[in-house]
């Protein structure tokens, strides 16, 4: 068996959205929930064309990337509504805040609600686009996770109570 040492470390592995295992790996993370089908465009694309393409796909967001899918900028509804003859480079918000795929979904949901942010690009440490996380998706997944954990705790309590009762009966 060949063994490799991933020198950059576990955090870097997770930040790249690479597979992991164990109990915590089963919890949903930003990269799992992010939508991978978000429209993208190049710096030189005409805004009018980009807007039309995004609208047809049902999106109000478009990520500006290079040929290697490295994120350069973001256009939300406000930027997409600009002069159609501008280029994406002129219209975009350059260097938007991006988040890594391994961030727990409930943390992203809480921050997105607190900061009233409708969407957030998810990228690897190198800036490679993974997808766009929508607040509604993050909130829904966080809620689902919360309910599942609550249910698990309830089952655990019931199990402990029944075991205690049996021990007492003995």
């Amino acid at each position: 068996m060949e063994v490799y040492d991933y020198v950059a470390g576990k955090q870097d592995w997770l930040a790249a959205g690479l597979p992991s295992e164990g109990l915590l790996a089963r919890l949903p993370r930003a990269g799992d929930v992010a939508r991978k089908d978000v429209p993208t465009c190049s710096l030189g694309d005409r805004l009018g064309d980009v807007r039309e393409r995004a609208k047809k796909a049902g999106w109000e967001v478009c990520v500006v990337v290079n040929e290697e899918r490295i994120v350069f900028g973001l256009m939300r509804a406000k930027e997409l509504a600009g002069d159609p003859n501008q280029t994406a480079e002129q219209a975009m918000r350059p260097g938007p805040s991006t988040f890594r795929p391994h961030v727990p979904i409930e943390e992203m949901a809480a921050h997105m609600v607190e900061h009233d942010r409708p969407s957030s690009p998810i990228t690897t440490s190198e800036g490679l686009l993974v997808g766009v996380l929508l607040r509604e998706d993050a909130e829904r997944e966080a809620h689902r996770l919360h309910e599942a954990l609550h249910e698990h705790e309830h089952e655990h309590e019931q199990h402990e109570q029944s075991e205690g009762g049996e021990a007492h009966a003995r």
Partner: peptide, 26 residues
């Protein structure tokens, strides 16, 4: 922003800057 956060506090809040678990990235 009414809940503004600097970059340092944000990466800590989102768990992106935790110390490596092993020196050799195990």
């Amino acid at each position: 922003c009414a809940a503004a956060s600097c970059y340092g506090c944000l990466v800590i809040a989102l768990g992106e800057s935790t110390a490596p678990l092993h020196v050799h990235g195990g």
